[in-house]
Design a protein around this nucleic acid. Sequence first.
DNA 1: CGTGGCTTGTTGCAGGTGCAACGAAGCGGA
DNA 2: TCCGCTTCGTTGCACCTGCAACAAGCCACG
Lengths: 145, 145
Amino acid sequence: MPDRPPEFDLDSFLPYRVNVLAGRLSREFAARYRDRFGITIPEWRVVAHLAQAGAVSVREIHARVDMDKSRVSRAAARLEAAGYVTKRTDKGDRRLVALALTESGRAMMADLAVVALGYQDELMARLGDGAAFGDGIARLMDETG
Amino acid sequence: MPDRPPEFDLDSFLPYRVNVLAGRLSREFAARYRDRFGITIPEWRVVAHLAQAGAVSVREIHARVDMDKSRVSRAAARLEAAGYVTKRTDKGDRRLVALALTESGRAMMADLAVVALGYQDELMARLGDGAAFGDGIARLMDETG
DNA sequence: CGTGGCTTGTTGCAGGTGCAACGAAGCGGA
DNA sequence: TCCGCTTCGTTGCACCTGCAACAAGCCACG
């Protein structure tokens, strides 16, 4: 058998596996809140970050949450239309937009946090050793390998 | 402090972390072949599966590779247009399409396999213990957990 | 046969996405 | 002050995506 390509198995290819897993976790988690609140994943990320960070610019979210700035911008627009978020221009630097949760947004996030933490617990139970897996993620994120 | 919502930290939320990681690995890997071959991730998945499985229907790929059937169908169409794949109707069941790699497709996959295995090695080096991480993925996939 | 119900793959549609280009706003040196 | 350079957020564009609807084909039961 002359120079056959090295055997390659998609199912054991790490980027593929991580992607499939990511899709499943997202769908599984989204199923738990979509019906109740009708928001999408990017919107959920924005809300979750706002709950932690208070009033924040688009740029800040873009940097911290691994989303393109246009994605953040549009998610914020949808959230504003839904009444979960306010957008006002920053007093100091008028290029900036200060995003903040409305009362309605905070209420939603309070419910969402419960759902999220419950789901997290469930995942940890599946995992057995959550810390080791988290370590692995951190290692893979570090591109300097 | 009356019934404050439980503290929630997006950065330690597993679905979020896995999704960010998945995006990075995909982009990082895609960067290694896009310039050379000009194919997208869904196309790559189809080619990789065809290399393992020989002639296969859209349905089969849809089931095995966690892609919507329309996504498979369109990826296959693009691959056919690019000359990497042939589509002929199955002799026995004329509803089925038999997808198969062309010579050109096999040649591309031979190169891709080398790139992919190299990347896999690199990731394993980052990880240290690859088996443990793989275990974690498997556990999280198991929804009965 | 034949006819109703299923499966398979494609396609229309509405919407989301990344990227690049853009206008508005700040900043700093002459 | 003026002017070039940068940063911020939005938007146009081309593309991809999931979902549902669909035609074509198969099958089983009467």
